[in-house]
Protein backbone atom coordinates (compact mmCIF):
# COMPACT_ATOMS: atom_id res chain seq x y z
CA UNK A 1 0.00 0.00 0.00
CA UNK A 2 2.63 2.44 1.01
CA UNK A 3 4.64 1.35 -2.02
CA UNK A 4 1.86 2.04 -4.49
CA UNK A 5 1.35 5.41 -2.87
CA UNK A 6 4.99 6.22 -3.27
CA UNK A 7 4.73 6.20 -7.06
CA UNK A 8 2.31 9.10 -7.56
CA UNK A 9 4.00 10.99 -4.79
CA UNK A 10 7.34 10.74 -6.51
CA UNK A 11 5.71 12.30 -9.55
CA UNK A 12 4.67 15.27 -7.51
CA UNK A 13 6.33 18.06 -9.47
CA UNK A 14 9.67 18.61 -7.82
CA UNK A 15 9.97 22.07 -9.34
CA UNK A 16 6.92 23.32 -7.45
CA UNK A 17 7.90 25.45 -4.47
CA UNK A 18 7.16 23.82 -1.11
CA UNK A 19 4.00 25.06 0.55
CA UNK A 20 4.16 27.54 3.41
CA UNK A 21 3.51 24.64 5.77
CA UNK A 22 6.32 22.56 4.30
CA UNK A 23 8.76 25.42 4.73
CA UNK A 24 8.14 25.46 8.49
CA UNK A 25 10.64 23.80 10.80
CA UNK A 26 9.42 20.24 11.49
CA UNK A 27 8.53 20.76 15.15
CA UNK A 28 6.79 24.07 14.34
CA UNK A 29 4.76 22.26 11.69
CA UNK A 30 3.55 19.83 14.36
CA UNK A 31 2.64 22.77 16.59
CA UNK A 32 0.96 24.72 13.78
CA UNK A 33 -1.25 21.73 12.99
CA UNK A 34 -2.49 21.78 16.58
CA UNK A 35 -3.76 25.36 16.33
CA UNK A 36 -7.24 26.06 15.05
CA UNK A 37 -7.90 28.94 12.62
CA UNK A 38 -8.63 32.42 13.99
CA UNK A 39 -7.33 31.53 17.46
CA UNK A 40 -5.65 34.12 19.67
CA UNK A 41 -2.07 32.87 19.89
CA UNK A 42 0.92 33.98 21.95
CA UNK A 43 4.25 32.53 20.85
CA UNK A 44 6.85 32.90 23.58
CA UNK A 45 10.39 32.88 22.27
CA UNK A 46 9.06 33.44 18.77
CA UNK A 47 12.49 34.08 17.21
CA UNK A 48 12.19 35.78 13.85
CA UNK A 49 8.46 35.04 13.74
CA UNK A 50 8.50 31.96 11.51
CA UNK A 51 5.56 30.28 13.23
CA UNK A 52 3.61 33.49 13.86
CA UNK A 53 3.90 34.66 10.27
CA UNK A 54 2.67 31.27 9.05
CA UNK A 55 -0.24 31.23 11.51
CA UNK A 56 -1.23 34.80 10.67
CA UNK A 57 -1.16 34.36 6.91
CA UNK A 58 -2.37 30.77 6.56
CA UNK A 59 -4.71 30.37 9.52
CA UNK A 60 -5.82 33.94 10.15
CA UNK A 61 -4.87 33.76 13.81
CA UNK A 62 -4.46 36.84 16.00
CA UNK A 63 -0.72 36.34 16.40
CA UNK A 64 1.30 37.87 19.23
CA UNK A 65 4.82 37.09 20.32
CA UNK A 66 7.47 37.55 22.97
CA UNK A 67 11.13 37.42 21.99
CA UNK A 68 14.33 38.18 23.85
CA UNK A 69 16.64 39.24 21.04
CA UNK A 70 16.40 42.68 19.48
CA UNK A 71 17.16 41.24 16.05
CA UNK A 72 14.33 38.73 16.45
CA UNK A 73 11.84 41.36 17.59
CA UNK A 74 12.81 43.67 14.76
CA UNK A 75 12.47 40.88 12.23
CA UNK A 76 8.96 40.25 13.56
CA UNK A 77 7.84 43.87 13.81
CA UNK A 78 9.13 44.65 10.33
CA UNK A 79 6.86 41.83 9.08
CA UNK A 80 3.94 43.51 10.79
CA UNK A 81 3.75 41.01 13.65
CA UNK A 82 2.91 42.20 17.17
CA UNK A 83 5.87 41.14 19.23
CA UNK A 84 7.27 42.49 22.48
CA UNK A 85 10.85 42.30 23.57
CA UNK A 86 10.88 40.32 26.77
CA UNK A 87 11.26 36.88 28.30
CA UNK A 88 9.10 34.14 29.68
CA UNK A 89 10.26 34.64 33.26
CA UNK A 90 9.61 38.37 33.48
CA UNK A 91 7.01 39.44 30.96
CA UNK A 92 4.07 37.05 31.17
CA UNK A 93 2.70 37.97 34.57
CA UNK A 94 0.60 40.92 33.40
CA UNK A 95 -1.54 38.95 30.96
CA UNK A 96 -4.99 38.23 32.36
CA UNK A 97 -6.17 34.65 32.86
CA UNK A 98 -7.37 33.05 29.64
CA UNK A 99 -6.01 35.92 27.53
CA UNK A 100 -5.11 33.55 24.70
CA UNK A 101 -6.63 30.47 23.10
CA UNK A 102 -3.17 29.00 22.69
CA UNK A 103 0.18 29.86 24.24
CA UNK A 104 3.22 28.36 22.51
CA UNK A 105 6.58 27.81 24.15
CA UNK A 106 8.78 25.99 21.69
CA UNK A 107 12.33 24.96 22.59
CA UNK A 108 12.45 27.62 25.30
CA UNK A 109 11.33 26.04 28.57
CA UNK A 110 14.83 24.70 29.26
CA UNK A 111 16.24 28.22 29.00
CA UNK A 112 13.93 29.81 31.57
CA UNK A 113 15.02 30.61 35.11
CA UNK A 114 11.90 29.21 36.72
CA UNK A 115 10.32 26.57 34.47
CA UNK A 116 7.76 25.56 37.09
CA UNK A 117 6.41 29.09 37.42
CA UNK A 118 6.52 29.56 33.66
CA UNK A 119 4.44 26.42 33.13
CA UNK A 120 1.91 27.54 35.72
CA UNK A 121 1.71 30.95 34.04
CA UNK A 122 1.21 29.37 30.62
CA UNK A 123 -1.66 27.31 31.95
CA UNK A 124 -3.17 30.45 33.49
CA UNK A 125 -2.98 32.83 30.54
CA UNK A 126 -3.78 30.31 27.79
CA UNK A 127 -6.78 28.06 27.46
CA UNK A 128 -4.22 25.63 26.12
CA UNK A 129 -0.45 25.67 26.14
CA UNK A 130 1.75 23.93 23.60
CA UNK A 131 5.23 23.24 24.94
CA UNK A 132 8.10 21.60 23.11
CA UNK A 133 11.55 20.89 24.50
CA UNK A 134 14.59 18.70 23.85
CA UNK A 135 14.46 15.41 25.73
CA UNK A 136 17.55 14.96 27.88
CA UNK A 137 16.63 11.30 28.25
CA UNK A 138 17.09 10.70 24.50
CA UNK A 139 19.36 7.69 23.98
CA UNK A 140 22.00 9.61 22.03
CA UNK A 141 22.24 12.13 24.85
CA UNK A 142 22.52 9.39 27.43
CA UNK A 143 25.07 7.52 25.36
CA UNK A 144 27.17 10.59 24.80
CA UNK A 145 27.32 11.31 28.51
CA UNK A 146 27.78 7.66 29.51
CA UNK A 147 30.47 6.75 26.99
CA UNK A 148 32.28 10.00 26.29
CA UNK A 149 31.84 11.40 29.78
CA UNK A 150 31.29 14.83 28.24
CA UNK A 151 28.24 17.11 28.16
CA UNK A 152 26.20 16.04 25.14
CA UNK A 153 26.16 18.11 21.96
CA UNK A 154 23.33 17.28 19.56
CA UNK A 155 21.59 19.22 16.80
CA UNK A 156 19.01 20.36 19.36
CA UNK A 157 21.53 20.87 22.18
CA UNK A 158 24.18 22.55 20.12
CA UNK A 159 25.99 24.56 22.79
CA UNK A 160 29.04 23.85 24.87
CA UNK A 161 28.23 23.55 28.56
CA UNK A 162 29.83 26.93 29.29
CA UNK A 163 27.90 28.97 26.75
CA UNK A 164 24.59 27.15 26.78
CA UNK A 165 21.40 29.11 27.44
CA UNK A 166 19.84 25.80 28.48
CA UNK A 167 20.02 26.00 32.25
CA UNK A 168 17.10 23.73 33.09
CA UNK A 169 17.26 20.68 30.88
CA UNK A 170 14.90 17.83 31.65
CA UNK A 171 13.77 14.49 30.35
CA UNK A 172 10.27 13.75 29.12
CA UNK A 173 9.68 11.75 32.29
CA UNK A 174 10.79 14.74 34.42
CA UNK A 175 8.41 16.99 32.53
CA UNK A 176 5.47 14.61 32.88
CA UNK A 177 6.16 14.32 36.60
CA UNK A 178 6.25 18.12 37.05
CA UNK A 179 2.98 18.57 35.19
CA UNK A 180 1.39 16.04 37.54
CA UNK A 181 2.83 17.81 40.55
CA UNK A 182 1.47 21.24 39.65
CA UNK A 183 -1.90 20.04 38.41
CA UNK A 184 -1.38 20.55 34.70
CA UNK A 185 -3.17 18.09 32.47
CA UNK A 186 -1.43 16.69 29.40
CA UNK A 187 -4.17 16.75 26.82
CA UNK A 188 -2.05 15.42 24.01
CA UNK A 189 1.56 14.69 23.27
CA UNK A 190 3.66 14.02 20.21
CA UNK A 191 7.19 12.72 20.32
CA UNK A 192 9.59 13.52 17.50
CA UNK A 193 12.58 11.52 16.29
CA UNK A 194 15.86 13.13 15.33
CA UNK A 195 14.58 14.03 11.89
CA UNK A 196 11.67 15.85 13.47
CA UNK A 197 9.28 13.14 12.35
CA UNK A 198 6.40 12.57 14.75
CA UNK A 199 5.76 9.15 16.23
CA UNK A 200 3.17 8.26 18.82
CA UNK A 201 4.39 6.82 22.09
CA UNK A 202 2.88 7.25 25.50
CA UNK A 203 5.04 9.96 27.10
CA UNK A 204 4.60 8.30 30.46
CA UNK A 205 6.40 5.20 29.17
CA UNK A 206 10.15 4.61 29.37
CA UNK A 207 10.41 4.02 25.63
CA UNK A 208 9.32 7.54 24.69
CA UNK A 209 11.82 8.90 27.17
CA UNK A 210 14.54 6.91 25.42
CA UNK A 211 13.61 7.27 21.74
CA UNK A 212 12.25 10.80 21.44
CA UNK A 213 14.69 13.58 20.68
CA UNK A 214 12.00 16.09 21.57
CA UNK A 215 8.46 16.17 22.82
CA UNK A 216 5.52 18.42 21.99
CA UNK A 217 2.86 18.62 24.69
CA UNK A 218 -0.59 20.17 24.70
CA UNK A 219 -1.38 21.26 28.23
CA UNK A 220 -4.46 22.53 30.00
CA UNK A 221 -5.04 23.58 33.54
CA UNK A 222 -6.16 20.50 35.43
CA UNK A 223 -9.63 20.49 36.95
CA UNK A 224 -9.62 22.33 40.24
Amino acid sequence: MSRSLAVPLSYAPAVEAPSARERLRRDLRVIADMIEPSARVLDIGCGDGELLAYLASEKGVDARGVELSQSGVNACVTQGLSVIQGDADRDLGAYPAGAFDVVVLSQTLQATRNPKLVLETLARIGRRAIVSFPNFGYWRVRLSLALRGRMPITPLLDHQWYDSPNIHLCTISDFVALCGEIGIRIERSVTLDRFGRPFALDPRGWLANLLAEQGVFVLTKGSE
Binding site: C76, S82, G86
Partner: peptide, 21 residues
Protein backbone atom coordinates in the same frame (compact mmCIF):
# COMPACT_ATOMS: atom_id res chain seq x y z
CA UNK B 1 8.27 51.41 28.73
CA UNK B 2 8.18 47.84 29.99
CA UNK B 3 5.69 48.82 32.68
CA UNK B 4 3.57 50.42 29.98
CA UNK B 5 3.80 47.26 27.88
CA UNK B 6 2.71 45.13 30.83
CA UNK B 7 -0.30 47.41 31.33
CA UNK B 8 -1.14 47.12 27.64
CA UNK B 9 -0.83 43.35 27.92
CA UNK B 10 -3.14 43.37 30.91
CA UNK B 11 -5.63 45.35 28.80
CA UNK B 12 -5.25 42.74 26.01
CA UNK B 13 -4.05 45.48 23.66
CA UNK B 14 -2.23 44.71 20.44
CA UNK B 15 1.31 45.77 21.26
CA UNK B 16 4.83 45.54 19.93
CA UNK B 17 7.78 46.59 22.01
CA UNK B 18 11.39 47.09 20.99
CA UNK B 19 14.28 48.25 23.12
CA UNK B 20 16.90 49.67 20.79
CA UNK B 21 20.56 49.30 21.64
Amino acid sequence: SRELVHALNAAAANVSFVEIE
